[in-house]
Nucleic acid binder design. Structure first.
Lengths: 234, 234
DNA sequence: TGTACATCAGTGAACGCGCGTTCACTGATGTAC
DNA sequence: TGTACATCAGTGAACGCGCGTTCACTGATGTAC
């Protein structure tokens, strides 16, 4: 009887608070989260929320951590929807899900990759491990793709000296060792996704490209093809 | 006597207000700009500021437009510091300045490329022309580089149909016609710069790469080299 | 099964705060004759 | 060169607002015997 009725209730209320907070952020910007307005919507007095979070910052920290984990989970789900004997297809699925998730949950995306709240930033000892989840996932996917006939494009194999030194220190990701070229390649792909998505989220691509979706798929396709990691057409 | 003493004073005060607003944004986040705190720092009562801006939103709009123009100007200056008979070197200079400017004035960068202020976004009829300045500059630089022996990498020449249709509509930029491949290539380069810079600004690259500078230069170098637009070593 | 007690979710009043914006005004600065 | 007038920067009081957080409390829910 570890999880009694009270614990369940408590958990449900906690979730409700976070859910409303996310919606407020979506509707009025990430800085608009306020305990009073959440309480109002729940039909409860503001001090009641202090039973669940010790301060407004505590709530925000929880939202940020949730966002990290939700992103990682979404990527894992997308990856695992593809048979594990086709690593290229799994990698592609994860790359495409990255954008889909960002567009579906722009607030969570901003909590991770944008200035979360004025003057506030989540303690990095909490966010760093969460951030590693996503990197680790892509590193593993590229690693598998390389093992199955893929190859890092030339330019990432010839790592410049000043970069190589640094990368030697971070060779261990998620417990297993990866060559600097792979890590560099992953970071490069990651930055490209990031760039296209933030430009799209803030409306900079639409005036030029209309729907940015085809461009995203084109760019991802181009880089993966150059790495021999694009899934064969069915 | 078009610009009398009063006009000069007025202009100086307007600049002072914006300068303080920028500093407050830098120190406490972009949402922290408040007329009252600016007035306090200037040793003036809050209503006095209404002589210069008709509301808080008006001030923010001015800051955003300033940011666009400052970025464009910085790029032009960096470009023109390189002899015009070396378009590749000019292009590279502009790409590197893009990051330098973002790091030097992160607030202005966020005003352009991030969620400026909760629930507020500048009227697009004002920002769009300003945004075009930057795009136009890169388009022109790449155009010149192509005319001087550069070439768009293969993958951007073979534009997918669904993209080609849309690009046909925006072929005119800054008054002169550009082929879809060039436009696509420019957007791709832009997105890469964007991605690396936002990741760096929010501290996501440092845990992996240490100083992200070498990585940025490496990536820009790689894409420009592949396009035959990397300046010859002196 | 029934009672006494502990736990804990939520209340209601209050605190001090900074915010954008309005209004009628004062007094200095510039302009026209 | 001197005076009358218009312009305009800035004042001070006031408005109503929503905010995070504290505190002593009530009353329901669960637990131990």
């Amino acid at each position: 009887m570890a999880e009694g009725r009270r614990e369940k209730q408590r958990h449900a209320t906690t979730q409700e608070i976070k859910q409303i907070a996310r919606r407020h952020m979506r509707d009025q910007g990430t800085a608009a989260v306020s305990l009073r307005s959440i309480a109002k919507e729940m039909g409860v007095t503001p001090p009641a929320l202090y039973r669940y979070f010790d301060s407004r910052d505590g709530l925000i920290t929880a939202l940020i951590l949730d966002a990290y984990h939700a992103l990682a989970e979404a990527l894992v789900t997308a990856r695992d929807a593809v048979p594990s004997d086709d690593p290229a297809a799994r990698l592609l699925a994860a790359c495409l899900e990255y954008r889909d998730w960002a567009l579906a949950r722009p607030v969570d995306y901003q909590l991770i990759f944008g200035n979360p709240i004025p003057g506030y930033s989540a303690p990095s000892e909490l966010t760093q491990p969460a951030a590693r989840l996503t990197m680790g996932l892509f590193v593993a996917l590229v690693g598998e793709a390389v093992a199955r006939g893929g190859h890092i494009p030339d330019e990432y194999e010839a790592v410049p000296l000043e970069l190589e030194e640094r990368l030697a220190g971070t060779e261990q990701v998620e417990g297993y060792t990866i060559p600097p070229g792979v890590l560099l390649f992953v970071v490069a792909v990651w930055a490209r996704m990031q760039g296209m998505i933030t430009l799209e989220l803030f409306g900079h691509l639409q005036p030029i490209l209309g729907d940015p979706g085809p461009f995203y798929r084109f760019e991802i396709g181009a880089i993966l093809r150059r790495a021999g990691m694009y899934p064969a057409a069915q």
